[in-house]
Design a protein around this nucleic acid. Sequence first.
DNA 1: CGAAAACTCACTGTATACAACATGTATTTT
DNA 2: AAAATACATGTTGTATACAGTGAGTTTTCG
Lengths: 236, 236
Amino acid sequence: MRDEGRSPKQELADHLKMSVLTLRLHPGEDLDEAQLSQAFGLSRTPLREVFRQLAGEGYLDLRTHRGARVSEMSHTTLRDFFLVAPMVYGAVLRLAAANATSAQIDQLKEAQETFRQALRTGSAEDRTLANTRFHEVTGEMAGNVYLSPSFNRLLIDHARIGMTFYRPQTKRVAENLSEASTQHDAIIAAIEAGDEAAAAQLADDHWTLSRDQIELFVMPEGLDFPLGQVPGMTPA
Amino acid sequence: MRDEGRSPKQELADHLKMSVLTLRLHPGEDLDEAQLSQAFGLSRTPLREVFRQLAGEGYLDLRTHRGARVSEMSHTTLRDFFLVAPMVYGAVLRLAAANATSAQIDQLKEAQETFRQALRTGSAEDRTLANTRFHEVTGEMAGNVYLSPSFNRLLIDHARIGMTFYRPQTKRVAENLSEASTQHDAIIAAIEAGDEAAAAQLADDHWTLSRDQIELFVMPEGLDFPLGQVPGMTPA
DNA sequence: CGAAAACTCACTGTATACAACATGTATTTT
DNA sequence: AAAATACATGTTGTATACAGTGAGTTTTCG
């Protein structure tokens, strides 16, 4: 805790970020300046500055004379995501292993503890936020101004994709999350040891797990019914 | 030309970007809100919004209660730059070859023509801006929202590094620039052919050339004088 | 004479009032 | 009745006035 309540501006920014990450505000949704400024006790001037900043970070889209929207997620962005994510995640964890300070390692352990907690007792939103926080810390560890902007943008949509596809609480999903948690522990160990190669390998493993999980929901196993016998099918 | 003079806001943003890229505003320099708002016929409100946006794109740094500064370039950022640039440049050109539209290819050829012109008759600033424009177009071709933020940030500092280290107009520099122009032509060809592998290879070559040029100025050949006989040396 | 405290002043951050623009609705015209 | 135009309304963009903060300077006291 810094100094009690931070500035209302920071509070608004954090609230909006959180809402976007958890899909409480879903992609494409309009934001009402008047309503938000009233809700957070801010005038429109600083509020619009926050909008500008969040737009720069990839949370919002600004259209002149037509207000702010939560940034969209189309099939092209999903494809773009799959193309870039492995490369950037790998680079970040490699640099994290090379550069992490002990204070940052403590932060990472703390984030992992929160994530484990969320896995046991939390909601999907809690899990997503905790997981995002974990990876944010690795980004801070890498500490590369040229890599961070892309990495943070990836984290935003990774969170949103996760909220979309991890929702159904099946046994398989639980197993995957448990595996993810184990990998987090291994990542912490690799970073603490300064083992770049191991960190890069773990990034790859972690990404593969995440990708498989997503693929599983995008392309489920075909239903095993002969033609004409599918129950409960209603034509459009 | 769109509709005569664009909005004063856009004009201000473009002016600031150009000034930062060409070192007309050098790293760390303070920006005066009052002066700029008067010069561009804007009140401070929209001006500060522009500041926020440019800060998000990496041109400026904002410090609360202490105004805006041109973003710094320290030795750590230089190191960060060398670590990330090859990877991102390669990825961008590969994606550009895969995705470029014919309209974009025309834009690229136009940018290259401007660059060639600047090589013959232009100032160092003209060359830098034209070269930056060329690479910006490749970034648009790649069209990947997760890659662009980092790529554009790299371009900013690549321009500034270039302005710093390419300044002395020696024969060697001229040769390198000519070689760079030749590589640009090859890059256009690879993109037009949709040859991803060739584009990636050219990115590597282009980067190597650029890096060697920079290294040449950061670490010049040692002066070839025996100890105690260096002429014109004045102690600090 | 030096150091610490109080004050001054310029600049940044915020609120509010106003102007410009976009969209949806009603009216007019064919 | 359908289409087009004009209007009304709500929302975004800008200007200005004011409040809050930090840095430099002066003043005071050891």
